[in-house]
């Protein structure tokens, strides 16, 4: 079908608007890249709108990679992500499996017991005091144990498992397999797309989280990366990065350091971004089918 003149105009306008939006979405990250690779002395001459690197220097990255607080934050965050994802996987899969079985008398009761917590939870203050009472304050476990089961993610996995045909588990039962074996050998391999959603949501959440650490971690040596970043980017604390810098260049050296740490902390997300896009778009759909 030939396109009319009006349609061509419409498509051009449409693509232009979407293109502009893409630039707006991308610019802050380009800004971070440009500034982080800039030479602080040159950067002093450019004001707010940065559209290319001003000079070129890798000093900011060298500084960031040698900075104790940032590297220690990285280490803490890696620990949190690995333990957090493992714990959530170990907790979620059996729960989702049991709740996807049909002939369990207490199933709906247990489901209600879980769903209620999605509607009404302990407030920030009682939760804080309870976690302190468990002795988790200042421990990295305070960032993973209290969130090792997420009802929303669990429901995604459960919905997916409910869609696996009954005849499979029934015939495995007849062959003498028990539920643990069926879950392990049949349902985990068959639920890969939903489990990918679980692992990715959990991993990205733990990587990006800062607020729980802000509440529960007092010791600077246990700060996760995002909390270190928050202190650097927003509180303007300088993390003893600027030892031999004259005050005149100070602001611009700090600016390159900030953006280099933005890039260094966001890089892992960019690396797994193709996976995120592939699986999580599907996850939205699984999640919206039921509940």
């Amino acid at each position: 079908m030939r396109k009319t003149f009006g349609e061509k105009i419409f498509v051009a306008f449409d693509m232009f608007v979407v293109g502009v939006l893409c630039l707006v979405c991308l610019y802050p990250f380009l800004y971070a890249i440009f500034v982080s690779f800039s030479d602080p002395n040159e950067l002093a001459r450019v004001s707010g709108f940065v559209y290319k690197t001003a000079g070129f220097s890798l000093d900011a990255y060298k500084n960031v990679l040698h900075n104790y607080q940032i590297m220690n934050g990285y280490k803490n965050t890696l620990f949190i992500v690995v333990t957090g994802v493992l714990l959530e996987f170990i907790m979620t899969v059996p729960t989702a499996y049991v709740l996807s079985r049909k002939n369990v008398l207490w199933r709906n009761g247990i489901m209600m017991f879980i769903v209620l917590t999605m509607y009404f939870s302990g407030g920030m203050i009682p939760t804080y005091l309870v976690i302190r009472n468990y002795g988790l304050y200042d421990s990295l476990w305070s960032l993973t144990l209290p969130v090792m089961l997420n009802a929303y993610n669990m429901i995604i996995v459960r919905t997916y498992m409910s869609g696996i045909h009954d005849s499979l588990s029934e015939s495995a039962m007849l062959d003498g397999a028990n539920h643990l074996q069926i879950m392990w050998k049949l349902f985990i391999p068959l639920s890969k797309p939903a489990l990918a959603v679980l692992v990715l949501y959990s991993g990205v959440g733990h990587w990006n989280g800062w607020f729980r650490a802000f509440l529960y971690i007092g010791k600077a040596s246990k700060y996760p990366l995002q909390l270190v970043l928050r202190n650097l980017l927003i509180q303007g604390s300088e993390l003893s990065m600027l030892n031999n810098v004259s005050t005149a260049d100070h602001d611009f050296v700090l600016a390159t350091l900030k953006q280099a740490s933005v890039i260094v902390s966001t890089l892992p997300i960019l690396f797994i971004y193709p996976l995120l896009q592939k699986y999580l778009v599907g996850g939205i759909m699984i999640g919206s089918i039921k509940e």
């Binding site: 979405c25 991308l26 802050p28 990250f29 800004y31 971070a32 990205v204 990587w207 990006n208 989280g209 800062w210 995002q226 909390l227 970043l229 928050r230 650097l232 980017l233 927003i234 900030k258 933005v262 902390s265 966001t266 997300i269 971004y273 995120l276």
Partner: peptide
């Protein structure tokens, strides 16, 4: 993309 970038980084920018 912005959905996956941490709130701290976004607010820093």
């Amino acid at each position: 993309l912005p959905h996956f970038v941490s709130t701290v980084v976004i607010c820093g920018l």
